[in-house]
Write a protein that binds this DNA or RNA. Sequence first.
DNA 1: TATGAAGCTTCCGGTCGCTGGAAGGTCAAG
DNA 2: CTTGACCTTCCAGCGACCGGAAGCTTCATA
Lengths: 132, 132
Amino acid sequence: MNIGQAARRSGVSAKTIRYYEEIGLIPAAVRTGAGYRDYGEAEIETLRFIQRARSLGFSVKDVGGLLALWRDRSRASADVRRIARDHVLAVEQKIAELEGMRRTLVALIDRCHGDDRPDCPILDGLSDSCCH
Amino acid sequence: MNIGQAARRSGVSAKTIRYYEEIGLIPAAVRTGAGYRDYGEAEIETLRFIQRARSLGFSVKDVGGLLALWRDRSRASADVRRIARDHVLAVEQKIAELEGMRRTLVALIDRCHGDDRPDCPILDGLSDSCCH
DNA sequence: TATGAAGCTTCCGGTCGCTGGAAGGTCAAG
DNA sequence: CTTGACCTTCCAGCGACCGGAAGCTTCATA
């Protein structure tokens, strides 16, 4: 199967598949006589795994770790769990950070009448030491 | 005032101040005889404004827009409000995305016993079409 | 069989918002 | 006069790709 079809079937773009190969996340694909990359079902499975892990926000590096554990039949599920728990903590921290921003922004926006007059509590808030 | 002190007083690192100058977010600083950048209170104010806007998650480009409005005494507060509202929407979207990830991750982690055995619902979940 | 479109290849550069480091000039204290 | 803490410029790299150019290959159609 060509890279284009592999891309369609895995949800990972052809560009990105090449990139993953280049950085060593996936092994170099087998080539056809003409030099085209050739993929089978196993590779599609791997790409799908990667796609799902990425869509859950795991870094490419973490995905590398998960892939290694996925392939290792004698893995300890605790190792997988640790990676996932660390990641969930990072996600929660990011959410908290964004909610802090959101709160401050909404508070500023609520106080701004938002018409053609120049006085603006949003800009005032950014001028004073409003936040943190 | 040297760039180092300006950095300390504004909360923007010296490296970053130079970077902001380079990309045109702030005008080129006045130089001393020796070629050192020289900052006054007005510049510190500007840097603080930038620092706060960045800490609320505005892109550097948006900060440029906000700075222009900040300096424009005949601005319409509606213009500021629009930038802020657009940004808050983007922040909310990002939060929703992260919460979706968090939900899925927590569900997977809860099902994983996390010991030295190899069977692991987290990896299974990443293999199947679990999400989306 | 020719031709043209669609696919593949590599390589290079850009994105965003910085950060680190090398090589060198300047300044104030001891 | 030296030392160390500044400052300067320039270049490279991070993460996770995307876009595009130049040049193959493959396949369907005229």
